[in-house]
């Protein structure tokens, strides 16, 4: 952590609102996108991001400078998103099946009709399709994959954020990707 960043955190901890607002400005976009990547909904992402910064404001005195502020704030974001996903999974009784006029993909159809990468990349729905497929994974697999490939976190950062070992992160990613391949079929890159 560089000394400027440390100074802002110290000032925010001492109750300086301007310093806290600077922290919000520095991290708000990343927190919003991270929440979106984990939830797939901008409105929910906005609510989560708000809750993250309110929590950070309340608990700033418990933040220990030995860890990075960004890791701390991303951990709060990830935990809140995981809670929401758990609630969603509990409430979901039927498997997701979306197809037809809204352009979303029917995952059951995908198994028998594997899409080609060229078609997928041209398709503006690629991301949406991946998001749909990601909902079929376990929460930990989805979280690890989203942090790694959408947010470009390193394995170490993911382990810190998720509170597990790097080997566990790699297992979640590896098993998740394997499952995604089964869901989406054999995609070929030209």
């Amino acid at each position: 952590m560089n000394s400027d960043a440390e100074q802002i955190i110290l000032e925010a901890k001492a109750g300086d609102k301007r310093a806290f607002n600077m922290l919000v400005t520095q991290h708000q976009k990343r927190v919003l996108y991270l929440a979106y990547d984990l939830l797939g909904d901008w409105d929910e992402a906005k609510d989560v991001a708000q809750e993250v910064f309110v929590k950070a404001y309340q608990k700033l005195d418990t933040f220990e400078e030995r860890s990075r502020f960004s890791t701390w704030i991303y951990r709060i974001t990830t935990n809140l998103c995981i809670d929401i996903q758990r609630k969603r999974k509990r409430n979901r009784t039927e498997p997701i099946e979306k197809s037809g006029p809204d352009g979303k993909l029917n995952l059951n159809q995908k198994l028998s009709e594997p899409p080609k990468i060229e078609a997928l990349l041209e398709n503006t729905q690629l991301r949406r399709q991946l998001e749909e497929a990601l909902t079929q994974l376990s929460i930990n697999q989805k979280t690890a994959i989203s942090l790694r490939y959408f947010q470009e976190f390193s394995t170490t950062e993911i382990a810190e954020t998720m509170g597990c070992s790097e080997n566990t992160v790699r297992i979640h990613i590896f098993r998740g990707i394997k499952k995604l391949k089964t869901i989406l079929g054999n995609i070929q890159i030209s």
């Binding site: 996108y33 991946l130 959408f150 990707i177 391949k181």
Partner: peptide, 13 residues
């Protein structure tokens, strides 16, 4: 891994 490449290219809307 092709799937990893696909994921890395899929930017958020």
């Amino acid at each position: 891994s092709a799937m990893v490449q696909v994921l890395s290219q899929a930017s958020a809307p």
